[in-house]
Design a protein around this nucleic acid. Structure first.
Length: 151
DNA sequence: GGGTCATGCATTTGT
DNA sequence: CAAATGCATGACCCT
């Protein structure tokens, strides 16, 4: 993922044929953790509630880049990429707190969610899969399929 | 001490 | 054989 670094502005939208069906309906989902819900944490892109999507094991077609008005964007979080995020693994670890506050809700480890990430610095769309692994009694969230496609 | 996460590694899948 | 995948482990925070 050569073009993505910690300062990039990236906007995410659920892949159209792989809807989350789980847009937040306001308010925190987990009251037991310390994250304090802010109304401005509502997702930027609201998808209509939908049927259970099929589990896609292959990436859906990547849409063309879109133009965004920076005035209408808001900062969510940043992460300094680690070695293991940019090595050949093709995965990027998403911090749990951010994953659970800003990303769509994942219902099971088998049901990942394909996301189109708009790289606004390079006008490029990255199609990656958001999913998690069970880890201890918790979850470890990752984006995978993050490697450059082989030519 | 418990939770998170960077990373290693074994297994599975693809070429 | 290479790449992708699934999971485990240990270091490193916080509280």
């Amino acid at each position: 993922m050569a073009g993505v670094h910690e300062k990039n502005n990236v906007a995410a939208s659920a892949a159209e044929d792989n809807l989350a069906g789980s847009s937040r309906s306001g308010g925190p989902l987990r009251s037991e953790n310390s994250y304090r819900w802010n109304p401005r944490d509502e997702p930027l892109v609201h998808e209509p509630a939908a049927r259970q999507p099929p589990v896609l094991t292959y990436p859906p077609p990547t849409p063309d880049p879109r133009l965004f008005n920076p005035q209408q964007m808001r900062f969510l979080f940043q992460k300094k990429l680690q070695n293991s995020d940019v090595k050949a693994n093709g995965r990027i670890v998403v911090p749990k707190r951010e994953a659970e506050s800003h990303f769509p809700v994942l219902v099971s480890k088998e049901r990942g969610l394909w996301l189109h990430l708009d790289d606004m610095d390079y006008m490029q769309v990255w199609t990656v899969r958001f999913r998690f692994w069970p880890n201890e009694r918790s979850r470890m969230y990752i984006l995978d399929h993050t490697s450059e496609p082989k030519l």
